[in-house]
Amino acid sequence: MFRMAAIGILAIGTATGALAEVAPDDILWQEDGSIAQSLTGTPGSAEEGERVMTTNALGNCVACHTIATMPDVPFQGTIAPELAGAAGRWTEAQLRGILVDAKRTFPDSFMPGMYKVGPFIRPGVAYTGAAPASPDDIEPVLTAAQVEDVLAYLMTLTE
């Protein structure tokens, strides 16, 4: 009986989470490529965001960006702008838009969309080199929660 109740609570929790999460195709874009609405409805974790940004298999932001606030991370990339001070240069909505699909803000940007599922030219399933069986098999690089986590970290970069 107790177990049944616990499962019930779990199911409600999951359902609420799914309802609050905005799918890549349902995002409400502003004219300038920014996104005002949170993708999850809950504030992200800056600590988790830092992990996402420095993990190869996740955001791997340091592959291209230099991030002066992470002096312990070796071999930071030199492709893309320095992220220190990002929160002073951009609003939260603008940074969310850039994370999700930078090309909405900068049409020629090199930066991949981190929460984008198409349209793409010859997308593959992650790094397998293989075509997806169906377009629905293309998962965004990051989850909605991970985007909000990275955003939370970026919002700490005020100078």
């Binding site: 791997n60 340091v62 592959a63 291209c64 070796p74 071999f75 930071q76 990339g77 030199t78 492709i79 090309k103 090199f110 991949p112 969309g113 984008k116 793409f120 030219i121 010859r122 997308p123 593959g124 293309i138 690089v141």
Partner: peptide
């Protein structure tokens, strides 16, 4: 010059626009 894949990258993005720069190491 075609931007392929989910990361939307062309050969030129790395080897023309960014040669000399680093992607990680």
């Amino acid at each position: 010059y075609t931007r392929f894949g989910q990361l939307e990258m062309s050969c030129a993005n790395c080897h023309e626009d960014n040669y000399g720069n680093y992607i990680r190491s």
